[in-house]
Design a protein around this nucleic acid. Structure first.
Length: 212
DNA sequence: AAACCTTTGAAGGGC
DNA sequence: GCCCTTCAAAGGTTT
């Protein structure tokens, strides 16, 4: 039973004891996707600027990590009892890094497929078209160019850099911190790690994270 | 009501 | 070619 319909395929409910698709799920033959969900697909999201245009708001195609998150979010939420997506996303970021290249590859391939479909469906579209459609809440002085999203405070500006595309090259081996603890084993052949030192969540709010 | 938070990856502009 | 910025998802939290 599919968790949700996306392109009429792709996302299926995982068994409760399976976490990372340990054994290949029985994927039905993928019908040719329509890619119509790129226009206003979501129910509750920021929609700033999307409606004020005569043209429909065309969303970016999902990258590999977004596909992974969309698929695994229900499982992580159910197992971690965390409701806020920020914490869940932190966890899934660690999970993503702990995946093997083979396990990530299916998401990269699907992302590439969606990108090709998106490009053919919207030939003249550019991701730049969506720039400025989401208003940013600017903290402090707008003249500084800082906001609380990418640069919470003008301290250590050299340390808040985002990973460049080259450093996130998927050909690199996934990195796992030495001071990490596996939080999931189950029947799957892979183990995700959560760093102990960087403490992505307070232990009081997530006392059961080792149960995964 | 709308933006923030938080993650990784893709894309594009600037230099 | 590298760096930087923005936006894809999501939903509770904050403004």
């Amino acid at each position: 039973m599919p968790v949700e319909v996306l392109d009429a395929q792709l996302f299926y409910e995982l068994a409760q004891d399976s976490f990372f698709l340990p054994s290949p799920p029985p994927p039905p033959p993928p019908p040719p996707p329509k890619a119509t969900n790129f226009v206003f697909p979501d129910k509750k999201k920021r929609k700033t600027g999307a409606q004020d245009s005569s043209r429909p708001y065309i969303k970016k195609p999902l990258n590999a990590f977004m596909l992974f998150m969309k698929e695994q979010r229900p499982v992580v939420k159910a197992q971690f009892l965390h409701k806020d997506s920020a914490t869940v996303n932190k966890i899934m970021g660690q999970m993503w890094k702990s995946l093997s290249l083979e396990q990530q590859e299916k998401y990269y391939e699907e992302s590439e497929r969606l990108t090709v479909i998106h490009a053919s469906t919207y030939p003249g579209w550019s991701c730049r078209d969506n720039y400025g459609k989401k208003k940013k809440r600017v903290w402090r002085s707008a003249a500084t160019g800082f906001n609380n999203r990418s640069t919470p405070a003008p301290v250590l500006p050299a340390l808040v850099h985002a990973p460049s595309a080259s450093s996130c090259n998927w050909h690199e081996a996934p990195q796992v911190e030495p001071t990490s603890v596996p939080f999931m084993t189950s029947g799957a052949s892979l183990v995700a790690y959560v760093p102990l030192s960087s403490s992505p969540w307070p232990s009081s709010s997530c006392p059961t994270y080792t149960q995964l």
